[in-house]
């Protein structure tokens, strides 16, 4: 019973916090701006892995299968999968 009440209170607190954090006042506040910057910075960091993976796909998979030789394409596909 007590834990259900605690969970309900926590849920309410979470909803209030989310509501505050999506308000335009919070968004303009220093704390809001820092939170937004942190999120954007994190998304930016994650691009490094995506760029590396896409570069690898282009260099090691797409360019080699450009010649459209069926046997060669099958071999490239098989080799690429073994190497990742």
């Amino acid at each position: 019973m007590a834990s259900a009440r605690a969970a309900k209170t926590k849920d309410l607190a979470r909803r209030v916090r989310d509501r505050v954090r999506t308000s335009s006042v919070f968004d303009r506040s220093l704390r809001g701006r820092v939170l937004r910057l942190e999120r954007e910075l994190e998304a930016d960091r994650q691009l490094h892995r995506k760029i590396a993976e896409l570069s690898d796909v282009v260099a090691e998979l797409l360019i080699p299968i450009q010649d459209r030789d069926e046997e060669r394409v099958t071999e490239v596909l098989s080799q690429y999968r073994k190497s990742i």
Binding site: V57, L77, I84
Partner: peptide, 11 residues
Amino acid sequence: ETRHVFHLIAL
């Protein structure tokens, strides 16, 4: 792993 997905796409 985007590389796994692109390999699947090619396949």
